[in-house]
């Protein structure tokens, strides 16, 4: 019999690179020889140390990789640019032509109402000079109230998006549609309020949400698995849910900070 080398023992450990007869020979020799067993154990110990070097991925590895890859893929022309494509993807998601028509009509009506609302407020309710000072005093409190309401609205929006993309239950989707309808109106008002408060970033974001909420509010009664899947893809590709959560958390933090500052100033 050929002498058993340490290299043979390494191959034996993995049962790879040796023929069946050689494997049997080594197994028999290991059973008989304590010295060979000790050599084999030394190899096992060395290999075991390598396992202690394991590095586990972070839970958000996929999202982080995507953040780095996405602009590179766009630059390389592998995927279309994501920023101007948001509305296009939404349009694609609204596959039934009648839903597209309803969306366009509703958007037009809301824009008209919004313009009328802003113009009406500006011409009729200009504050008298003596009220300006008290308005400034209350500005921080008003901002806090607005942020709290917007945060609550975003939480509800997040729930609507998740239900629409994950649920196949008809009654749940019906309730979700009604909730989306109510959120359309409040979302529009908060966008206007944010504009008036000078928070253009928040206003812009809320305006971006409006067509999504509108389409959810006008979803056909028989939502299909495909439409839920399309919505999931839409949410994934635009990171809309992530943005909703981020802004919601930011508003919560700002609200708490303002409340703490108000408390300090009263003391």
């Amino acid at each position: 019999m050929n002498p058993i080398t340490d290299d043979d023992l390494v191959l034996y450990r993995y049962r790879d690179g040796l023929d069946a007869a050689r494997i049997e020979q080594i197994a028999a020799a290991l059973a008989e020889s304590p010295a060979l067993r000790e050599r084999y154990a030394a190899i096992e110990r060395a290999i075991a140390h390598f396992d202690s070097q394991e590095i586990e991925p972070d839970p958000d590895i996929g999202a982080r990789l995507w953040r780095r890859l996405s602009p590179q893929l766009e630059e390389a022309g592998v995927v279309a640019s994501s920023s101007p494509g948001m509305l296009e993807r939404l349009r694609a998601w609204l596959t039934p032509p009648q839903a597209r028509f309803a969306f366009a009509l509703a958007a037009t009506v809301l824009v008209a109402i919004g313009v009328g609302f802003v113009v009406g407020r500006q011409t009729v309710t200009a504050p008298p000079p003596q009220m300006v000072a008290s308005n400034e005093v209350d500005a921080a409190a008003a901002a806090r109230v607005l942020e709290a309401y917007v945060a609550a609205n975003l939480r509800a929006t997040e729930g609507v998006l998740l239900t629409a993309s994950n649920s196949g239950d008809a009654s749940l989707l019906e309730g979700n549609r009604e909730l989306a309808q109510s959120l359309v109106e409040s979302n529009r008002l908060y966008a206007l309020a944010a504009t008036r408060a000078g928070n253009t970033q928040l206003a812009t974001f809320l305006r971006q949400l409006e067509p999504v909420l509108l389409s959810l509010a006008n979803q056909p009664g028989t939502a299909t698995i495909q439409s839920s899947e399309d919505l999931r893809h839409f949410l994934d590709s635009t990171d809309l849910l992530f943005q909703v959560r981020t802004i919601e958390a930011r508003l919560d933090r700002t609200g708490k900070r303002r409340a703490a500052n108000d408390g300090d100033s009263r003391i």
Partner: peptide, 20 residues
């Protein structure tokens, strides 16, 4: 077909195993 969501799915499905 150039769909970003599909690439994102492939990253999510394979990223952790490739990282390991």
């Amino acid at each position: 077909a150039g769909e970003a969501a599909a690439f994102r799915h492939l990253v999510d499905a394979n990223g952790a195993a490739l990282f390991r």
